[in-house]
Simulated assay, not measured.
Amino acid sequence: MPVITISDLGDPRLADYAHATDVALKNARRSEAGREHGLYLAESLLVLERALRAGHVPRSVLALGASEHEAVAALAAAGHDEVPVFVGPGELLAELTGYILHRGLIASMHRPALPHPEALLAGTGTGGTAATATTAPRRIVVIENVVDPTNVGAIFRSAGAIGADAVLVTPRCSDPFYRRAIRVSMGTVLQVPWTRTGEWHELAPLLREHGFHTAALALTPDAVSLRDFEAHLPEKIALVLGAEGEGLTPEAIAAADTVVQIPMLHGIDSLNVAAASAVAMWAVSRER
Score class of each variant (00 low, 15 high):
Pro2Trp: 11
Thr5Asp: 10
Ile6Leu: 10
Leu9Cys: 09
Leu9Pro: 02
Pro12Asn: 02
Ala15Trp: 00
His19Leu: 14
Ala20Trp: 01
Ala24His: 10
Asn27Phe: 10
Asn27Ile: 04
Ala28Asn: 00
Ala28Pro: 02
Arg30Ile: 12
Ser31Asn: 06
Glu32Asn: 08
Ala33Cys: 04
Leu39Pro: 02
Leu41Pro: 03
Leu41Lys: 00
Glu43Leu: 08
Leu48Asp: 07
Glu49His: 07
Ala54Pro: 05
Gly55Trp: 00
Arg59Ile: 07
Arg59Ser: 04
Leu64Pro: 00
Leu64Ile: 05
Leu64Phe: 15
Ala66Leu: 14
Ala66Lys: 15
Ala66Cys: 14
Ala73Val: 09
Ala74Trp: 01
Gly79Asp: 09
Val85Ser: 09
Phe86Tyr: 15
Pro89Arg: 14
Gly90Glu: 15
Glu91Val: 12
Leu92Gln: 15
Leu93Glu: 02
Ala94Ile: 00
Ala94Trp: 03
Thr97Leu: 07
Ile100Ser: 12
Ile100Thr: 15
Arg103Asn: 09
Gly104Ala: 14
Ile106Pro: 01
Ile106Leu: 09
Ile106Ala: 07
Met109Cys: 07
His110Ile: 10
His110Lys: 09
Arg111Phe: 13
Pro115Val: 02
Glu118Ser: 09
Leu121Met: 04
Gly123Phe: 12
Gly123Leu: 08
Gly125Thr: 06
Thr126Asn: 10
Gly128His: 06
Ala131Cys: 01
Ala131Gln: 12
Thr132Ser: 11
Thr132Asn: 13
Arg139Ile: 12
Ile140Ala: 04
Val141Phe: 01
Val142His: 13
Phe156Asp: 06
Phe156Tyr: 10
Arg157Lys: 14
Ala159Lys: 01
Ala161Glu: 11
Gly163Leu: 08
Ala166Arg: 03
Leu168His: 02
Val169Ala: 06
Cys173Val: 00
Cys173Tyr: 06
Ser174Gly: 14
Arg179Glu: 14
Thr188Cys: 03
Thr188Arg: 13
Gln191Ser: 15
Gln191Lys: 12
Val192Asp: 04
Val192Trp: 01
Val192His: 10
Trp194Pro: 07
Glu199Tyr: 06
Trp200His: 03
Ala204Gly: 05
Pro205His: 12
Leu206Glu: 00
Leu207Cys: 10
Arg208Ser: 13
His210Arg: 12
Thr220His: 04
Thr220Asn: 01
Ala223Phe: 08
Ser225Asp: 13
Asp228Glu: 15
Ala231Pro: 03
His232Lys: 13
Leu233Val: 08
Pro234His: 01
Leu239Gln: 04
Val240Thr: 01
Gly242Val: 01
Gly245Ser: 10
Glu251Leu: 14
Glu251Val: 00
Ala252Asn: 07
Asp257Lys: 05
Val260Gly: 05
Val260Phe: 02
Gln261Phe: 09
Ile262Arg: 11
Met264Cys: 04
Ile268Asp: 04
Ala274His: 04
Ala275Val: 13
Ala276Met: 05
Ser277Phe: 08
Val279His: 06
Trp282Arg: 09
Arg286Ala: 14
Arg288Pro: 01
Arg288Thr: 15
